[in-house]
């Protein structure tokens, strides 16, 4: 039987639950006992997914704001390991996790693999797959340390929805190794509205051809939860501000999805697109250069495209 610890550190319970799929890939048919530890508010939402849920006995942790106390979180995880001798420890690769995991690996003298995106395992030989060189290369890594298998995993890489036990076992643990905190959170500035198109993963960009209906791009952007960008010709006509110009002399962007409407694709514009995952080009001219680098080309009028696509998207929502 394999014992795993999953750290449920921040408010996102789903992040922790999803890691169960990773455990599943690690050990397959072998029986596993999954332990969860972390933010008390989160633990409640893990009921039914985890075998064991651990809370601190003396409520020491609640006294300090544990959320960003990297060293104390590491201390607790180390104590848990010493008590339970886990085969593997999985940590979500969020801001805190990325600082906790490496420290813990030094403590436990074991190998750590960051940002695992896939797992290949036959139960005994386990390879953790992760990207390197800005995603250009994939590496398969093995642990050589004598300690537990350790990995950090980003959100949405794995998914898990099935409940595993009727009732999780709750345990109280007397953490002894809590130190005075070396870091204090002073204040938080909330999520700023993504002013910068460089931050957006989905961009709907309008070119010279969209001048007469440029406003409608916002509707499509909203439906896809993206932002609107523009090529130089639109900026020149003062239909949109320079801050959303994409191109060699505007901003360089790396969105996941780029929908280019009425954009011919001159090199000056294309130079602003680096590493995008998917490109849809909507253009009346099939010879426009941008069509050669698009995944999907829609030959036709941009205004018609937006209206028809929005109708299709909303129709689906209504069907729900």
């Amino acid at each position: 039987m394999k014992k795993c610890l999953i750290y449920a550190g921040n408010e996102n319970a789903k992040e922790a639950v999803d890691l169960i799929e990773a455990v599943d890939h690690l050990y397959g048919q072998v029986n596993t006992r999954i332990y969860g530890f972390g933010d008390p508010k989160v633990l409640k939402s893990l009921e039914g997914y985890f075998d064991v849920l651990i809370r601190d006995e003396g409520s020491e942790l609640q006294k300090n704001d544990m959320k960003f106390d990297i060293i104390n979180i590491t201390n607790c995880l180390e104590e848990l390991y010493q008590a339970y001798d886990f085969d593997s420890i999985l940590i979500p690769a969020n801001y805190v996790g990325r600082m906790v995991a490496p420290r813990l690996s030094i403590r436990l003298e074991t190998g750590l693999v960051a940002d695992v995106t896939a797992i290949e395992s036959d139960g005994e030989n386990i390879e953790l797959i992760r990207p390197a060189y800005s995603g250009k290369l994939m590496a398969a890594i093995r642990n050589r340390g004598r300690g537990p298998l350790m990995m950090s995993v980003r959100q949405n890489v794995f998914q898990w929805e099935k409940l595993r036990v009727e009732k999780s076992q709750w345990k109280k643990f007397p953490f002894k190794n809590i130190e005075a905190s070396e870091v204090t959170l002073l204040w938080t500035e909330g999520q700023e509205a993504m002013e910068d198109i460089r931050e957006s993963e989905i961009l709907i960009a309008g070119g010279g051809g969209t001048a007469r209906y440029f406003d409608e791009l916002e509707d499509l952007a909203e439906a896809l939860q993206g932002r609107v960008a523009a090529s130089r010709k639109i900026i020149d006509q003062e239909i949109a501000p320079r801050s959303i110009q994409v191109g060699q002399s505007g901003k360089t962007i790396s969105p996941k999805l780029y929908i280019a409407i009425g954009i011919s694709g001159a090199i000056q514009h294309i130079e602003g697109l680096k590493n995008l995952d998917h490109l849809i080009a909507v253009n009346k001219k099939r010879h426009a250069p941008i069509c050669s680098i698009a995944d999907l080309v829609v030959e036709g009028d941009g205004k018609e495209f937006i209206e028809k696509l929005l109708r299709r998207i909303h129709r689906k929502d209504q069907e729900k």
Binding site: R232, I235, R242, G247, Q248, S249, G250, K251, T252
Partner: peptide
């Protein structure tokens, strides 16, 4: 003229010479 103006803006924002 717009190409020329735009080029100026671009050189201000990015450190490269086209």
């Amino acid at each position: 003229q717009q190409d020329i103006d735009d080029e100026y803006e671009g050189m201000l924002e990015n450190d490269s010479h086209t």
